[in-house]
Amino acid sequence: SLSVDNKKFWATVESSEHSFEVPIYAETLDEALELAEWQYVPAGFEVTRVRPCVAP
């Protein structure tokens, strides 16, 4: 099958004044980091952490 098993990760994104967490959907932690950097670094943010979303 061609289905992709995307998992939810939380990326911590920082600017000079703010820090916030955004959801990233990817297959692996490395891919989540790449996606977060691709989305947020060009906008002037720094991705400081990516972690798996742990269900309660």
Rank of each mutant, 00 (worst) to 15 (best):
residue 24 I to D: 00
residue 29 L to C: 15
residue 50 V to A: 02
residue 16 S to T: 08
residue 20 F to P: 00
residue 8 K to Y: 12
residue 14 E to M: 13
residue 6 N to H: 12
residue 12 T to C: 08
residue 52 P to I: 12
residue 17 E to C: 09
residue 5 D to S: 14
residue 5 D to G: 15
residue 12 T to K: 07
residue 11 A to Y: 02
residue 32 A to P: 00
residue 49 R to M: 14
residue 44 G to E: 02
residue 35 L to D: 02
residue 45 F to S: 04
residue 13 V to S: 01
residue 49 R to A: 14
residue 4 V to N: 12
residue 3 S to F: 08
residue 42 P to M: 07
residue 56 P to G: 12
residue 1 S to L: 09
residue 47 V to H: 05
residue 16 S to Y: 08
residue 55 A to V: 11
residue 34 E to F: 14
residue 27 E to T: 14
residue 12 T to Y: 07
residue 51 R to P: 00
residue 3 S to E: 07
residue 10 W to H: 03
residue 37 E to G: 05
residue 31 E to L: 11
residue 50 V to T: 02
residue 3 S to K: 12
residue 9 F to R: 00
residue 53 C to N: 08
residue 15 S to C: 10
residue 1 S to F: 10
residue 41 V to Y: 05
residue 36 A to L: 06
residue 56 P to N: 12
residue 6 N to E: 06
residue 32 A to L: 03
residue 40 Y to L: 04
residue 53 C to F: 07
residue 38 W to L: 14
residue 45 F to G: 02
residue 43 A to C: 15
residue 53 C to D: 15
residue 3 S to Q: 12
residue 31 E to M: 12
residue 41 V to A: 11
residue 1 S to V: 09
residue 48 T to G: 02
residue 15 S to V: 05
residue 13 V to A: 02
residue 23 P to Q: 08
residue 45 F to D: 01
residue 35 L to N: 04
residue 7 K to S: 06
residue 10 W to A: 03
residue 50 V to L: 06
residue 4 V to R: 13
residue 12 T to H: 06
residue 34 E to M: 15
residue 23 P to G: 06
residue 20 F to E: 02
residue 12 T to G: 02
residue 42 P to N: 07
residue 52 P to V: 11
residue 7 K to M: 08
residue 42 P to R: 11
residue 42 P to E: 07
residue 44 G to A: 02
residue 33 L to S: 05
residue 28 T to Q: 03
residue 23 P to S: 07
residue 18 H to S: 09
residue 55 A to L: 12
residue 28 T to G: 05
residue 11 A to L: 06
residue 15 S to Q: 06
residue 24 I to G: 00
residue 29 L to E: 06
residue 51 R to C: 05
residue 26 A to D: 00
residue 16 S to W: 09
residue 17 E to D: 12
residue 31 E to P: 00
residue 56 P to A: 10
residue 44 G to W: 03
residue 29 L to T: 04
residue 45 F to C: 04
residue 38 W to C: 07
residue 42 P to Y: 07
residue 23 P to F: 12
residue 33 L to P: 00
residue 16 S to C: 08
residue 26 A to Y: 02
residue 3 S to C: 15
residue 54 V to R: 10
residue 56 P to D: 11
residue 52 P to L: 13
residue 44 G to I: 01
residue 38 W to S: 14
residue 6 N to Y: 15
residue 6 N to R: 15
residue 40 Y to H: 04
residue 37 E to W: 13
residue 2 L to Q: 10
residue 50 V to E: 00
residue 7 K to F: 11
residue 36 A to P: 02
residue 1 S to W: 09
residue 31 E to Y: 05
residue 55 A to R: 12
residue 9 F to I: 00
residue 3 S to D: 08
residue 18 H to D: 07
residue 34 E to G: 07
residue 42 P to G: 09
residue 20 F to I: 04
residue 56 P to S: 11
residue 47 V to L: 04
residue 7 K to Y: 09
residue 3 S to L: 10
residue 43 A to H: 11
residue 45 F to L: 04
residue 26 A to K: 01
residue 21 E to K: 05
residue 17 E to G: 13
residue 34 E to D: 07
residue 39 Q to C: 15
residue 17 E to M: 11
residue 36 A to F: 04
residue 46 E to C: 10
residue 11 A to S: 01
residue 4 V to M: 12
residue 40 Y to F: 09
residue 2 L to N: 11
residue 2 L to D: 08
residue 49 R to W: 08
residue 10 W to I: 12
residue 29 L to D: 03
residue 7 K to G: 05
residue 9 F to G: 00
residue 7 K to E: 03
residue 1 S to T: 10
residue 31 E to N: 05
residue 36 A to Y: 03
residue 50 V to I: 13
residue 34 E to Y: 14
residue 32 A to M: 02
residue 39 Q to V: 13
residue 41 V to N: 13
residue 37 E to S: 10
residue 39 Q to G: 05
residue 35 L to S: 05
residue 50 V to N: 00
residue 37 E to V: 13
residue 46 E to W: 14
residue 47 V to Y: 01
residue 33 L to E: 05
residue 33 L to Q: 08
residue 43 A to M: 15
residue 22 V to R: 02
residue 20 F to G: 01
residue 56 P to Y: 11
residue 18 H to T: 11
residue 27 E to W: 10
residue 14 E to F: 09
residue 49 R to G: 13
residue 11 A to V: 14
residue 41 V to E: 06
residue 18 H to L: 13
residue 14 E to Q: 14
residue 26 A to I: 02
residue 39 Q to P: 03
residue 14 E to T: 14
residue 37 E to Q: 14
residue 31 E to K: 14
residue 14 E to G: 06
residue 2 L to R: 07
residue 3 S to W: 10
residue 45 F to H: 02
residue 37 E to R: 15
residue 13 V to W: 03
residue 49 R to N: 14
residue 30 D to C: 13
residue 17 E to T: 14
residue 53 C to E: 11
residue 30 D to H: 11
residue 56 P to H: 11
residue 29 L to A: 08
residue 42 P to C: 08
residue 4 V to P: 10
residue 49 R to Q: 10
residue 54 V to G: 08
residue 27 E to L: 13
residue 1 S to M: 10
residue 33 L to N: 04
residue 30 D to Y: 10
residue 28 T to V: 02
residue 10 W to Q: 02
residue 32 A to D: 00
residue 43 A to K: 14
residue 38 W to N: 13
residue 4 V to A: 11
residue 18 H to R: 11
residue 1 S to I: 10
residue 9 F to K: 01
residue 1 S to K: 09
residue 14 E to I: 13
residue 4 V to Q: 09
residue 33 L to W: 15
residue 24 I to P: 01
residue 46 E to Y: 12
residue 25 Y to R: 04
residue 54 V to Y: 11
residue 28 T to F: 04
residue 45 F to A: 03
residue 46 E to K: 15
residue 29 L to N: 03
residue 54 V to P: 10
residue 46 E to T: 14
residue 53 C to A: 13
residue 5 D to N: 15
residue 41 V to G: 15
residue 3 S to M: 11
residue 48 T to K: 08
residue 45 F to P: 00
residue 32 A to Q: 00
residue 40 Y to I: 04
residue 25 Y to T: 04
residue 19 S to Q: 07
residue 18 H to P: 01
residue 54 V to L: 10
residue 7 K to N: 07
residue 8 K to T: 07
residue 40 Y to E: 03
residue 20 F to T: 03
residue 11 A to Q: 00
residue 39 Q to A: 11
residue 27 E to S: 14
residue 6 N to D: 06
residue 49 R to V: 07
residue 34 E to W: 14
residue 32 A to S: 01
residue 53 C to Q: 06
residue 50 V to R: 01
residue 13 V to N: 01
residue 18 H to E: 10
residue 44 G to M: 02
residue 45 F to M: 05
residue 29 L to W: 13
residue 47 V to S: 01
residue 44 G to F: 03
residue 19 S to N: 05
residue 39 Q to E: 08
